[in-house]
Design a protein around this nucleic acid. Structure first.
Length: 264
DNA sequence: ATGACACGCGTTGCGTGA
């Protein structure tokens, strides 16, 4: 099975790219983030015509996640148990969608950005990651053999070599010890970040800002990552980053990450 | 060229992203 994750930065702006990507790669399950569309306006038909079932979770022009699957969809959960809310009154934002596809519990995740250190959004980000870790730990406690893939845009660069210039990031979000600790906590709970197992090279980026010629200069970040449960991690046989998706007309600022998963 | 931000909403700017 091929499982991919892609922060597409508006599905309506890039539906043709997504269709072409599925046709070209034959990915079985595609988890999307930043779809930026309400469920009723999601462009389902082009994907259904290709044989994919479409599960969406979007409230507005902000955030939004989805899962496209041609190996079945079951047990849809919009938001994870204990997911923190944002705003007053508090709202559980459309940042997490759980769908079981071909026997794998896929979570499409769009972790809050955090904006700036000390901003309420930053605290929200840390709380959100801690709550997700608690939920993920619970899934393994319930079933140590669970097949779980938490894929998406984590908005954390775990290593200094996951950003183009760690000096530029000094004092900014994505690289702070608190964010990295919140990310590493999933490993302590028994999960493995499986993309790095197969793509260990430094400066292997998945995101390049639209500004300042970041892509031509290869000044990017590695923030699109996958935590797999032990039973699923043992089945991951490869990973690749679809870097060419950053080229051409109207690209997303993120590219897809594809995982190869062997049959159990 | 991989090339100098882009999205949706709503209206000619604003909030957001990282």
């Amino acid at each position: 099975m091929l499982l991919a994750t892609w922060n597409i930065n508006s599905i309506r702006a890039r539906v043709d790219r997504a269709v072409a990507f599925l046709e070209r790669t034959g990915v079985d399950v595609l988890a999307l983030q930043e779809t930026k569309v309400k469920d009723q306006a999601f462009p389902r038909e082009p994907f259904e015509a290709l044989g994919y079932e479409v599960v969406t979770h979007g409230y507005s022009q902000w955030n939004g996640v989805a899962v496209l699957s041609r190996v079945g969809v079951a047990d849809v959960e919009r938001g994870f148990p204990g997911q923190p809310t944002w705003g007053d009154p508090g709202v559980a934002e459309a940042r997490a969608l759980g769908v079981t596809c071909g026997g794998v519990r896929v979570w499409s995740l769009y972790v809050p950005n955090g904006r700036e250190v000390g901003d309420p959004h930053y605290t929200y980000k840390l709380d959100w990651l801690a709550a997700l870790r608690d939920a993920a730990q619970g899934w393994l406690a319930t079933d140590p053999r669970a097949q779980v893939a938490m894929v998406g845009d984590w908005n954390v660069a775990p290593l200094d070599t996951d950003v183009w210039d760690v000096g530029w990031f000094a004092g900014r979000t994505h690289v702070t010890p608190a964010e990295r600790d919140a990310f590493t906590a999933f490993a302590h709970a028994g999960y493995t970040e499986v993309s790095r197992v197969h793509l260990p090279a430094e400066r292997t980026f998945t995101y390049w800002d639209y500004q300042q010629l970041r892509f031509p200069r290869d000044e990017g970040m590695r923030i699109d990552l996958t935590y797999a449960s032990p039973a699923l991690a043992a089945r991951v046989t490869g990973a690749r980053i679809e870097r060419d998706e950053r080229k051409g007309k109207q690209p997303s600022d993120h590219v897809p990450v594809v995982l190869e998963i062997a049959e159990p």
